[in-house]
């Protein structure tokens, strides 16, 4: 297995992975979405809320805020407290949340929570717990996906009519020394436009079996490296558990 970092799209980091199977990549994908524990607000006690939003709405908004998690000192089920106190007029931002643990903070300080009029007060105590995405999306660690790269082949019937070059919506096909080739197998979306437009049926474009583009965008709680590392640890624990059960049988 070989892994190489390639140009990111927006905040998504992308990796070019070769020499593995879709099953393994997909296992990592599923685990990082629903089994890597991160912190998110679960219960909120209100002391004061004069805003136009109901307590439940404010609590829901608070829960969705990603918290930077220290996955070394916090394990699944652990909890910590955050405090919020503000008086209007003005907007209450996620940055106004005061964490009781200096290692934990909100990942973005500019997320608006609620607006307050002059004299309005809000005061609350929130408890964040370490859980997994299986319970609720607020504990999802990453937005992650993978795709297979493309391989283009032509047969002898190809008469170099260049229809496929014109048809490619991303402009990735070109002619090089009398042959039709794919410039970039990573950016190709496998739309099949080049194959459909070929009158001679001389062109085929198929996904490669063992090379992938893995794109990972952290929700803000963990770094990309931590997400991959933690999901591998979870997978390892699951396999070891399975191993133990199998041993009991023999």
């Amino acid at each position: 297995m070989n892994m190489k970092k390639i140009a990111p799209i927006g905040n998504s980091e992308r990796f070019f992975v070769t020499g593995t199977t879709p099953a393994l990549i997909n296992a990592i994908r599923r685990i990082s979405m629903n089994s890597v524990p991160v912190l998110a607000i679960e219960t909120v006690s209100f002391y004061d809320n004069d805003s136009v939003m109901f307590d439940e709405m404010v609590a829901h908004r608070l829960a969705m805020i990603p918290l930077k998690t220290d996955s070394k000192s916090y394990k699944q089920g652990d909890s910590m407290k955050l405090l919020l106190e503000k008086e209007g007029p003005g907007t209450v931002y996620s940055g106004d949340l005061e964490s009781t643990d200096p290692k934990i903070e909100v990942s973005d300080k500019k997320i608006p929570i609620v607006k307050l009029k002059k004299g309005d007060k809000i005061k609350l105590e929130a408890t964040a717990i370490m859980e997994t995405g299986r319970e609720h999306v607020k504990w999802q660690s990453a937005i992650i996906g993978f795709k297979q790269t493309a391989a283009l082949t032509t047969t002898k019937d190809c008469n170099l009519c260049k229809e496929c070059i014109k048809a490619c919506p991303k402009g990735l096909i070109e002619e090089k020394s009398g042959k039709i080739i794919l410039k970039d197998s990573i950016e190709c979306t496998l739309c099949g436009e080049c194959r459909d437009v070929c009158k001679k049926n001389a062109l085929e474009i198929l996904p490669e079996k063992d090379s992938f583009v893995l794109s990972i965008e952290s929700t803000g709680s963990l770094s990309t490296a931590e997400i991959i590392k933690n999901s591998i640890e979870v997978l390892e624990a699951k396999v070891n558990d399975f191993k133990k059960e199998v041993k009991k049988l023999s």
């Binding site: 905040n11 136009v52 939003m53 709405m57 908004r61 969705m64 805020i65 990603p66 996620s94 990942s107 973005d108 300080k109 500019k110 997320i111 608006p112 929570i113 609620v114 607006k115 999306v137 607020k138 999802q140 937005i143 965008e217 929700t219 803000g220």
Partner: peptide, 20 residues
Amino acid sequence: MMVPVRCFSCGKAIGQAYEE
């Protein structure tokens, strides 16, 4: 009422971008 904190479909935090 106010801009949602996260994207409904994918879960990315987008609330911070609205004011800018």
